[in-house]
Design a protein around this nucleic acid. Structure first.
Length: 803
RNA sequence: GCGGAUAUGGCGGAAUUGGCAGACGCGCAUGGUUCAGGUCCAUGUGAAAGCGAUUUCAUGCAGGUUCAAGUCCUGUUAUCCGCACCA
């Protein structure tokens, strides 16, 4: 027997798999289809790190197993290659981002191939390929044509480092998610996508998909649906303001109202106010602050009263002071609130600071002068006219009904979700395929002119005033209006990185199609995706954006399903050996090249799956990797113990069937760590027996194949039944053989373990009780005591309660 | 501040959903084989007490429910993640 030469073996089988094309998926087949998807990587300059393969190996195991079980499996891969890091690298090193991308992809590809994933490489996609982004642009044009893309001047987050606008979702703790620079507020005309139009469906349709609960909760919270009411307040100036509230029941307790400083009404009222300077100063101050700075001052509320005008409470008729304060956001609701300090903490803080009245309208709390009482489940209405005595839950609809009847307000659903800021003033993204004509406005370019390719330029830096680098491509910009033929200019903004990744899973289905993003036939066959695994960090951005686009394509009749992914799971992060997040600056990054070189791809794959619970983050361990290598070597060395005996050895028979069952189940439940542990135990049993039959050995390597595909293919070639193990049938188990005829019963007295007995598995409750209570040990233990109660759990234990 | 997750030996982690806590691996110890080679094989390994069979204590902390709690309930602490006054 030769020694376990993993580097030779791994290269050999990677070549064989490529030559035979055994992992190519065929569209349309009698077999059941299985479409497994992992989040395609962003090909960064650093190359793969040891965290990437965790997700890829997991679905590779499921894909390989399903293939062996007779499924027609699609497990594709591609590159999410537009984006800032590449562009920044290109700027710094004066290399075209296209070249940088090409090099990075080559490196990633080498690394992924080295790990032996069963990807269908013939379907590789690349978001920066014009043949690909042609369809990204095409989808954008459809959105535009349906009125879901619009341009609007609005306050945006401006990254002082990258000199680009960021969507709120990309701002992390007040700094740019990518470069870490300060983010400030600025106004700029931007392309927006109306994802909010899909908010309701994005929540409701979660009921039809199998996502892990955490992901569903996080998406729902992000969309943030709330049911409330809009209420009209007449002002003493004769104007009208509309506030949004979820607590219409507390209207009798509203003692002042607040407008966001940017609210249009403030501008309108200004000329007639007494303290114009003070107000203007506050508005300027608030405008300078980033959203982060505003919230940093959360405890200490600020604001200015609009002197010379009051609002009239529609139910009490009382005049209320009007304030502007930056604790009210112009982007949410109507940008105006009615303040009920007795029952809202923020309002309470503000009221205390500005000495405003606090009127209790819900009983049941402590003194509202001391703290706000916010419980909606306890307490009835007081000081509230026709609502008095009602519980809050009834008072809310009662008040809304009253408002609607009087024409003073209406029921209103609001969402936290905001529209998707889609413009970037950057080079390395898809050009937005629109033309601006003085006469016709924004005009889409004809679809037959797609792809609209990026112009070749030399300088990729954004312009000084934040304009796109494309603005320098004069020849490219100047064009004619497709509508009227007059001279016109192209849009110079590009799309965000999220665009290409919002539909890539559809292109895999039919990647070389020139006439459509994918053929209808192929889409009908492969969608929806059966299983999508990815990181929790993509739960609110990518996952939501791609669901939105998919739903839009569904509405157009392009895709046959309303949801793209049937099932979504999530992997935990692999941390550095010191338990901290892997990063270059911490110096704890583990390079896959090194570990594969040292222990082989099979050992790395095995360890990545054995390292801990798949959905939890866990630190890397070089010793742990060594342990998995040792396990594979023990499997390899079993060759020495192989006997010519036929069939399974009797003592291991039930063990084998139990292992087949456990491993099959565990792979599907992503409990890879315990599945591998079961295989380790089985190997230990073979060592204890000092022998293994060929049948047992082949079962073992088949079960291990999805995890360690190279070594098991090699062993299959030596001892197996011919052909590739990767396409051989998955072992079946006999349920009857997984059940033991005798089980161990734990005997407890007052909950303490006192004895263990082997009893027949068929024995019923009474039988077990009789056997146990009549045993000598038990008789001795309960002697002289009274038995109060005996609990029998068949197959588990007997607990005798004595006094 | 709000929301979510997590907490089990020296370490990574198991525990069929209320039923023997610590599977499997690492590490460590002892013995054997090879005795220069990242060895390999076997046995042991939560803590404390005892020569011992055994006993007691142990799943972040404090209570509670139950014959029985890592698992359920109440409170609390720590760590990590997400969000930023969402009315």
């Amino acid at each position: 027997m030769g020694s376990y030469n993993f580097s030779e073996i791994e290269k050999k089988w990677q070549n064989k798999w490529e030559e035979t094309g055994c992992f190519h998926a065929e569209t349309a087949s009698d077999k059941p289809k299985f479409y497994a998807l992992i989040e395609f990587p962003y090909p960064s300059g650093q190359g793969l790190h040891v965290g990437h393969p965790r997700s890829y190996t997991a679905l590779d195991i499921v894909s390989r197993k399903r293939r062996m079980q007779g499924y027609n499996v699609l497990y594709p891969i591609g590159w999410d290659a537009f984006g800032l890091p590449t562009e920044n690298f290109a700027i710094k090193n004066k290399i075209h981002p296209k070249i940088v991308t090409k090099n990075n992809i080559a490196n990633f590809k080498r690394q992924l191939k080295m790990l032996g994933f069963s990807f269908d490489w013939s379907r590789e996609v690349n978001t920066t390929d014009p043949e690909y982004y042609k369809w990204t642009q095409w989808i954008f044009l459809q959105l535009f044509k349906k009125g879901l893309a619009y341009k609007q001047e609005m306050p945006i987050n401006w990254c002082t480092g990258c000199k680009v606008g960021l969507s709120n979702e990309e701002v992390v703790n007040g700094v740019c998610e990518r470069c870490g620079s300060e983010v400030v507020q600025r106004r700029k005309s931007q392309w927006m996508l109306k994802i909010t139009e899909y908010a309701e469906r994005l929540i409701n349709d979660l009921d039809d998909v199998d996502y892990i609960e955490r992901v569903k909760t996080q998406q729902k919270n992000w969309i943030g649906r709330s049911e409330g009411a809009e209420v009209k307040f007449q002002l003493t100036s004769g104007d009208e303001m509309v506030v949004y509230t979820t607590r219409a029941d507390t209207l009798f307790g509203a003692t002042y109202v607040v407008l966001a400083p940017e609210h249009k009404l403030v501008e309108k009222l200004l000329p007639s106010l007494e303290n114009v300077d003070e107000i203007k100063e506050y508005i300027t101050l608030a405008g300078k602050k980033s959203e982060f700075e505003r919230t940093e001052l959360a405890k200490d509320k600020t604001g200015v009263q609009l002197k010379g005008v009051n609002a009239i409470n529609p139910v009490t008729g009382k005049e209320l002071p009007i304030f502007i304060s930056d604790y009210v956001l112009v982007t949410y609701g109507t940008g105006a609130i009615m303040a009920v300090p007795a029952h809202d903490e923020r309002d309470w803080d503000f009221a205390k600071k500005f000495n405003l009245p606090i009127i209790e309208v819900v009983a049941g709390g402590e003194n509202v002068q001391e703290a706000a009482y916010t419980d909606v489940y306890k307490g009835n209405m007081v000081n509230s006219g026709f609502l008095d005595g009602m519980p809050v839950k009834e008072a809310i609809p009662a008040m809304i009904k009253w408002l609607e009847e009087k024409g003073l307000g209406k029921k209103k659903v609001n969402y936290k979700l905001r529209d998707w800021l889609f413009s970037r003033q950057r080079y390395w993204g898809e050009p937005i395929p629109l033309v601006y004509c003085e006469k016709c406005g924004w005009v889409p370019i004809p679809e037959e002119q797609l792809p609209l390719e990026l112009p070749e330029i030399d300088e990729f830096e954004p312009g000084e005033n934040g304009e796109s680098p494309l603005a320098k491509a004069t020849e490219w910009i100047n064009t004619t209006c497709p509508h009227c033929g007059a001279p016109a200019k192209r849009e110079t903004d590009t799309m965000p990185q999220w665009a290409g990744s919002s539909w890539y899973f559809l292109r895999y289905i039919d990647p070389h199609n020139n006439d459509a993003l994918a053929s209808k036939e192929a889409l009908d066959y492969w969608t929806p995706i059966d299983w999508y695994n990815g990181g929790m960090e993509h739960t609110t951005l990518h996952l939501l954006y791609s669901r939105f686009w998919h739903k839009f394509l569904f509405d157009l009749g392009i895709v046959p399903t309303k949801e793209p992914y049937m099932k979504r799971t999530s992997h935990g992060m692999i941390l550095g050996e010191n338990g901290e997040k892997m990063s270059k600056s911490r110096g704890n990054v583990v390079n896959p090249d090194e570990v594969v070189n040292e222990y082989g791809a099979d050992a790395v794959r095995t360890f990545e799956m054995f390292i801990g619970a798949f959905d939890q983050s866990t630190p890397w361990s070089q010793d742990g990797l060594k342990g998995c290598y040792k396990f594979l070597e023990r499997v390899w060395n079993l060759q020495d113990m192989m006997t010519d005996e036929e069939g399974y050895s009797k003592e291991l028979c039930s063990n084998i069937h139990k292992t087949i069952k456990k491993v099959s189940d565990d792979y599907e439940k992503m409990k890879f760590n315990t599945g591998i542990a079961a295989l380790m135990s089985l190997v230990n049993d073979f060592y204890k027996a000092g022998k293994v039959t060929k049948g047992e050995f082949l079962t073992l390597i088949t079960l291990l194949n999805p995890v360690a595909p190279h070594m098991t293919e090699e062993l299959w070639e030596m001892y197996g039944k011919g052909g590739l193990l990767s396409v051989s049938p998955w072992p079946e188990y006999d349920e009857a053989l997984t059940v033991d005829s005798e089980v161990e019963i734990v005997v407890q007295i007052n909950g303490k373990i006192r004895d263990k007995m082997m009893v027949s598995a068929e024995l019923d409750k009474a039988g077990i009780e009789k056997l146990v209570t009549e045993s000598d040990t038990v008789k001795k233990l309960v002697d002289g005591k009274t038995i109060i109660k005996t609990i029998v759990v068949p197959g588990k234990l007997v607990n005798i309660v004595v006094k």
